[in-house]
Design a protein around this nucleic acid. Structure first.
Lengths: 240, 240
DNA sequence: TCGATTTGTCTAATTTAGTAGACAACTAGT
DNA sequence: ACTAGTTGTCTACTAAATTAGACAAATCGA
C-alpha cells in the first residue's frame, strides 16, 4: 500500500497523456505549435522518457499530436465542442456552427417496465410500461454521444417506429401531436465510461464521460421524455 | 500494445471500485444493504477475488463500504449531493437542505495580469490587472470544491481583504456596492483531477472532476467575477 | 560539413498489477 | 456441535508498467 495509492490505479503514461491532451483541448497550446521535448516532459512529470513516449503514442493514435523525427512533436488537433443547453434547445441546435455534419443512429428499441429512476423522471408508477430507445449520434463522422431515452408507452405507443423513420425526436413528437415541448430539468454528472459506452463511442477504457439526465415536458408540463445522454468529456463541454 | 489498450492505463481494481461506488452513489444499492460477495463480484468482473478485495479496500478507506468477516460487505454511505445552479443561485444555497455545515476557506490571493481566458470572461484586455482568489469549500467537514476566482482589480481593489474578512462573496460584493448580481454563463466540463486538486480536496489520483466555468455580472451586465470551480464528480452532481 | 538537438529503436532490470490456490477466522442457521 | 458460506491472510507465480542506458536516424543552424 505504498505507491499503490499514490498512483491511484491510473498508469503514469495515461495521466501524462490526459494532462497533455487537456492542455491542447483547453487551448494552452495552439494548433501546429511544438510541444516540449520528450526529455523536458519526462522531467516535468518526474517520469522516464519512455513513459512520456508511450503517452505520446496514445495521443498520436488519437490524432491529437504528430511526432517528427529530429524536429519535435507538434499539436495536430482542434478544440473541444461546446454544446449549448437550455429550456428550448433541440439536440442538433446546441452544436450549430461547430460541426459540418450531424446525424443520429437508432441502435435499438425495447418495451420495458419503468424502474425507480425512470418512473420518477416521467412521473409514473414504477413498473409502468415505457418505451426505451438507445441512440448514438455522430458529429463530422465521429461518435459524439450515446443516449438512452424512455417514453411513456401508453401515451406514445408508436414512438419507436416514428422515430426510427424520421430520425428526429422533434419531428417524431410533432407527428404524435406534440408541437411544443421544453426541458423541465437537467442533471449533470461525470464518471468513467462503462465498457459498453467505450465500445459504442470508440474510446479507451477510463475515459471520462459527461452525463446529462434530462426530463422533457409538453406544454401542460406533463413529462414526455426521460433521457440519459453520455458525452466523452474530452470532446465536448456543456454550456448552460 | 495488446492488453495495454484494453486496460487503457486504468487498473482493474480501480475500475471495479469506480463501478461499485457508482452503483452506491446512484442509488442502485441502498444504505446498509449487503453487496454481492467477493466471489460473485470476481465472476461478474472476470477478475480474481484478490482484485475485488483491493477495490473493496479502497472503498472501505473512503468510508463507502464496510466489510464484516463471516457476514459480508455492506453499504455505508449516502448518495451524491445535488448542487442546484441557476441565474441567481448563491453558492451555499445550491446545497440547501443537503448538508448541515458549509463553510469556505480562503487559501490565497494574488494580483496578476489577466490571461486570455480570464480576459475574455471578464470582458477586459489580456494583461489587465486582476485579483485572483483561491478557495476551498467544505461540506460537513469534507472538502467539496476547489475554486479559483478572478475579479477586475480596477473596480474592486479591496475585494481580497473584504472577502477574507467576511468569508462570503455575496457579502463582499454588497460592501463594495454590488447589491445584486447574476450568472451570465456557465460552462461545464469534466476531466481528471490535477495533482494540486487531489491534494487540496483529498482524493486519489485519477479521480474525476466536474468543472464549472462561470461569469457573474452586475445589474448592468458588466462582468464582476470569472471563476473556475472544481468538484469531485463522485460526491456531487449539478442540477440546472 | 559538423555538431547539437530531437525522435526512434533496442535490450535489460525493477516495481506494480493481477491470477491462483490454500487455509484460517468468523457468522448464521440447523 | 456442526456445516455452509463469508471475509482475512499468506505464498507463489505471471503479466504489465516503469525505469535505465545505449545508440541509430533525422533535422537544423553555424
Amino acid at each position: 500500500m505504498t505507491k499503490n495509492d499514490a498512483r491511484g490505479g491510473v498508469a503514469l503514461w495515461r495521466r501524462i497523456a490526459d494532462e497533455i491532451r487537456l492542455d491542447i483541448i483547453g487551448g494552452k497550446v495552439s494548433s501546429g505549435e511544438q510541444l516540449p521535448t520528450e526529455a523536458a516532459l519526462a522531467q516535468r512529470f518526474a517520469a522516464n522518457r519512455h513513459t512520456v513516449r508511450r503517452a505520446f503514442a496514445v495521443l498520436a493514435e488519437e490524432g491529437v499530436v504528430r511526432a517528427e523525427q529530429g524536429r519535435g512533436t507538434f499539436v495536430n488537433s482542434a478544440r473541444r465542442l461546446s454544446y449549448r443547453i437550455g429550456r428550448r434547445t433541440r439536440f442538433s441546435e446546441g452544436l450549430a456552427g461547430q460541426v459540418q455534419d450531424m446525424h443520429g443512429e437508432l441502435l435499438s428499441t425495447r418495451l420495458e417496465n419503468a424502474n425507480a429512476s425512470v418512473a420518477r423522471g416521467l412521473g409514473l408508477r414504477p413498473g409502468t410500461r415505457v418505451t426505451r430507445l438507445e441512440r448514438l449520434s455522430h458529429a463530422d463522422g465521429r461518435p459524439l454521444s450515446r443516449g438512452t431515452s424512455w417514453f411513456p408507452y401508453q401515451r406514445f405507443p408508436d414512438i419507436a417506429a416514428v422515430f426510427g423513420r424520421t430520425g428526429s425526436l422533434t419531428q417524431a413528437f410533432a407527428e404524435l401531436g406534440i408541437t411544443d415541448y421544453s426541458r423541465a430539468s437537467t442533471r449533470i454528472s461525470a464518471r468513467y465510461g462503462t465498457p459498453d459506452e467505450i465500445r459504442d463511442i470508440g474510446l479507451v477504457p477510463g475515459s471520462v464521460m459527461l452525463v446529462t439526465e434530462i426530463v422533457d415536458v409538453d406544454a401542460d408540463d406533463r413529462p414526455i421524455q426521460y433521457a440519459l445522454t453520455r458525452f466523452p468529456a474530452d470532446r465536448l463541454e456543456l454550456v448552460v
